[in-house]
Amino acid sequence: MYMHWPTPGENWFGDDSDQSRPDVEDLRIEALVAQRLSGDWTTRQQQITVAVQNRVVVLTGLVHDANARQVASELTWDTPGVFDVCNTLRLTGQRRGRR
């Protein structure tokens, strides 16, 4: 006899009715970070997307220079409630290398 590993859609241990709802704290952090980024002169006109899961902020998108990337990260880290920051912002002129 064997037991298979659960797939992501299976919930063996309880009610999964609230799994699709985002955490209220994550929504608060997302709104605060987005507000701070849109209010700062350096990051205001950049293409930055903010996502939060378990108080970890993921920054994605394109910025014009390395300074804007750094400022976005610093503003995010200074937001109350942020546990970690994953800054995946790319520079607009950045290209992938050839293989």
Score class of each variant (00 low, 15 high):
Asn54Val: 05
Leu37Phe: 05
Arg99Cys: 06
Arg28Asp: 02
Asn67Glu: 13
Glu30Lys: 06
Gln35Val: 05
Glu25Leu: 02
Glu30Thr: 08
Gln94Ile: 00
Ile48Asn: 04
Trp77Leu: 13
Ser73Gly: 15
Arg28Cys: 01
Thr42Arg: 12
Trp77Gln: 13
Gly61Ser: 06
His64Leu: 15
Trp5Leu: 09
Gln19Glu: 15
Gly97Glu: 14
Leu89Ala: 08
Glu74Tyr: 07
Gly9Glu: 15
Gln45Ser: 15
Phe13Ala: 12
Asp15Ser: 14
Arg90Met: 07
Ser38Trp: 10
Arg90Gly: 02
Arg69Gln: 05
Ser38His: 13
Asp18Ile: 08
Val63Gln: 00
Thr60Ala: 06
Val85Glu: 02
Thr88Val: 04
Gln94Asp: 08
Thr43Tyr: 08
Glu25Gln: 07
Leu91Ser: 04
Gln70His: 14
Tyr2Met: 09
Leu62Pro: 04
Pro22Leu: 09
Ser17Pro: 03
Val33Glu: 02
Asp15His: 11
Asp65Thr: 05
Thr76Gly: 03
Thr79Tyr: 06
Leu32Asn: 07
Met3Ala: 10
Val71Lys: 02
Arg55Ile: 05
Leu37Lys: 01
Gln70Asn: 11
Asp15Gly: 12
Gly9Val: 06
Asn87Tyr: 11
Gln94Pro: 02
Val52Asp: 01
Val56Ile: 13
Val63His: 01
Pro6Cys: 09
Pro8Met: 09
Thr42Gln: 12
Ile48Trp: 04
Gln53Val: 07
Arg98Ile: 06
Asp16Ala: 15
Ile29His: 02
Pro8Phe: 09
Phe83Pro: 00
Gln70Lys: 12
Arg69Glu: 01
Pro6Ile: 09
Ala72Gln: 02
Asn87Ile: 09
Gly61Cys: 03
Trp12Asn: 14
Val52Tyr: 00
Asn67Trp: 12
Gln53Thr: 08
Gly39Asp: 13
Asn87Met: 10
Asn87Asp: 15
Gly97Ile: 05
Ala34Asn: 02
Asp84Leu: 00
Gln19Ile: 08
Gln46Tyr: 10
Val57Trp: 01
Val52Gln: 01
Thr43Gln: 08
Val52Phe: 00
Leu32Asp: 08
Gln47Gly: 06
Ala31Met: 10
Gln45Thr: 13
Thr92Phe: 12
Val33Phe: 01
Gln94Gly: 04
Thr43Ser: 12
Asp84Tyr: 03
Val33Ile: 05
Ala34Gln: 04
Glu30His: 08
Thr49Phe: 00
Gln47Tyr: 10
Asp65Ala: 04
Asn54Leu: 09
Asp15Leu: 10
Arg21His: 08
Ala72Trp: 01
